[in-house]
Design a protein around this nucleic acid. Structure first.
Lengths: 159, 159
DNA sequence: GCGAAAAGGTTGGACTTCCAACAATCAGGG
DNA sequence: CCCTGATTGTTGGAAGTCCAACCTTTTCGC
């Protein structure tokens, strides 16, 4: 076997060592770093800057719950309803989402995907699945189950 | 005493069930929900809206690494360096952080906490510790270790 | 029915954040 | 030395986000 190139492990990049101190053991800090890394990887995978993870979640939730209201969508995606107003304005203008009126409650809208919205979502879903597989490989199958279980406890316990 | 209005009848709040579909199993989606919940609980605990989790992390990292540069702080906190410019402007104006010049490299600054910055950080740290204990109780001691281990794998694996 | 409270959605304002482009400084090869 | 490229930090622009206030509509107690 030719020892052509040395592994990059011996790289002498002078990345300064930063001590984390108490942050080393804080769950919240690590949640933020992991979420940031995950979103960045997802966004990079998709490429289109107008279809970031939040838009994907919105569309996926509408697809699973046709006729959902903006407030219900707000709760499910953990975003303020005013945030959804502008996001949905954008998705409607781009022809991906329909804001139908709900006849039984004239205050609310009934959200649905357009045919083109379903196409775009399908493409995003393949990226999301690939992204999730990448995360799966990092934590392993047992790790994934444990991770989801722990995250759900935090999500449900802090309401 | 003003006329008492009777409280409304306690009714079972009809929180609409939202189906998550594929999102049910996506790690990234749950990371975001957990981070959002944690962030919100921390902010509520602290109260002061000008000392949110990101400011806390910045100050904690400076305290652990006196003389750190903005770029190193940017990497450690996973925030763009331009984000740190404005955040540090604010902390400096409020007398919590010092931007000292680094004599050996006149491009960079050497960040340090002021005495008042250390006081403020100490107060934030008690809130952070209480917050983390709350998370500990949700996941249990073994769960915390597992969670940190899994999150670190994701953080390190997506670079 | 009536009136007050609650709920759905929008608007305006303030922050945060990223990215791209830039100026100043440093490092290395010729 | 000098030129080129890399690094550090700032600026400007765009987008995302929350909160508080508000309007409309619905619900509920009386």
């Amino acid at each position: 076997m030719p020892k052509a190139t040395r592994p990059r492990k011996d790289r002498v990049t002078p990345v300064p060592v930063v001590r984390l101190g108490p942050l080393e053991d804080f769950i919240g800090f690590h949640l933020r770093l992991a979420q940031e890394a995950s979103f960045r990887a997802f966004a990079q995978r998709v490429g289109d800057r107008r279809l970031r993870p939040s838009r994907f979640a919105i569309m996926a939730l509408i697809a699973e719950n046709p006729g959902i209201t903006q407030t219900a969508l707000s709760r499910a995606s953990a975003r303020d309803k005013s945030t959804l107003t502008t996001a949905l304005d954008d998705l409607v203008v781009r022809g991906l989402v329909l804001r139908g009126r709900a006849p039984e409650d004239r205050r609310s809208y009934a959200l649905m995907l357009t045919a083109r919205g379903r196409q775009v979502l399908a493409r995003l879903m393949t990226h999301a699945a690939a992204h999730d597989r990448q995360l799966d490989e990092l934590v392993g199958p047992a790790g994934k189950l444990a991770l989801l279980r722990l995250l759900r406890r935090i999500i449900g316990g802090l309401d």
